[in-house]
Design a protein around this nucleic acid. Structure first.
Length: 290
DNA sequence: ACTATTTCCTGGATGC
DNA sequence: TGCATCCAGGAAATAG
């Protein structure tokens, strides 16, 4: 399940491989689920645009697009206004199982392929997502309405302790749930919430407001450390996750608690426990975490 | 204003 | 072997 480190890895891979390429045409499947913008609008914005950059925002992959005026003029349906506002963004959320794959145009089309973007280099960028929790959207810069991002939280790696603590210290909800709330922090999912709580020696059920300043300090540091280490390892591959090259990350080998129910704690050998908090599996060491 | 629960979706695992 | 049921979870929608 792609969280911040996995999405960062994918975005970096895409930036390396397709930045500068031009989108020639777009096909979007008829399954309506994965769209946050109308299919025609997505195609309209993407076609004849140059991909300037690919980057990560929270768990979103953002393609910064610049319309190619000469190419756009060839299309008789486009108006002068459309061409004038030439900057836009394509925003992809991978959900649970979404993949963005680059390959030759004659590669076999995988089941659950929902979008195909034809590039001027001859390659295709394909969006494949068998569980359809992923979402596609476009946003024209300067537009009032924000299609891509609801109310994005702070970037965990760019938030210092003094901004981190006030996000949580008034909340009665379990600290685990608060870490998953994308309106507070953007990019933390189930794996890195559990792993950061282990590093902070705090149990996931603790009310966010009950943490001491020292515990917040350890959580802040532990979260930043685990995210940085996971990015270095290319993310965690649990089920389907692969990067833009189709290769797996290996941070799952470094997990202390996530996916280790019943296995001995790497620190104290106590069996790792799994409980459900707000409908989410939560893993912790009952001895190390208070 | 918050918090908790339900819903969407598929396929692998599990149970009888 | 086959068929039904459960489970994984991000985040929007709904309920309290």
């Amino acid at each position: 399940m792609p969280e911040l480190p996995e999405v960062e890895t994918i975005a970096r891979g895409l930036e390396q491989r397709i930045a500068g390429d031009i989108i020639e045409s777009v096909w979007i499947g008829d399954k309506p689920q994965p769209l946050k913008s109308p299919a025609a609008e997505i195609a309209n914005v993407l076609e004849h645009s140059r991909i300037e950059h690919v980057r990560r925002v929270g768990k979103h992959i953002v393609f910064d697009l610049e319309r190619e005026p000469r190419l756009a003029w060839k299309n008789a349906t486009r108006t002068r206004d459309t061409i004038a506002s030439s900057r836009a963004q394509w925003i992809v959320h991978l959900g649970m199982t979404g993949q963005l794959l680059i390959g030759p145009s004659d590669a076999p089309i995988l089941k659950h392929t929902h979008a195909i973007v034809k590039l001027a280099s001859g390659r295709e960028l394909r969006f494949v997502d068998y569980r359809r929790f992923g979402r596609l959207a476009v946003s024209r810069l300067g537009a009032e309405k924000d299609t891509g991002f609801g109310a994005p939280g702070l970037e965990p790696l760019e938030t210092d302790l003094d901004h981190f603590i006030p996000l949580f210290n008034q909340r009665k909800t379990p600290i685990k749930s608060a870490l998953l709330n994308q309106k507070l922090l953007s990019g933390v999912g189930n794996i890195y919430a559990d792993e950061s709580l282990f590093r902070a020696k705090v149990r996931p059920r603790r009310r966010a407001s009950s943490l001491t300043r020292a515990e917040f300090q350890k959580l802040h540091k532990g979260l930043q450390q685990v995210l940085r280490e996971a990015i270095k390892a290319g993310g965690s591959s649990i089920n389907d996750y692969v990067n833009a090259e189709g290769r797996e990350g290996f941070f799952q080998l470094k997990h202390y608690v996530y996916g280790r129910e019943g296995k001995p704690c790497r620190v104290c050998k106590t069996p790792i426990k799994r409980v459900i908090i707000a409908g989410r599996s939560s893993h912790y060491c009952p001895h190390c975490q208070k």
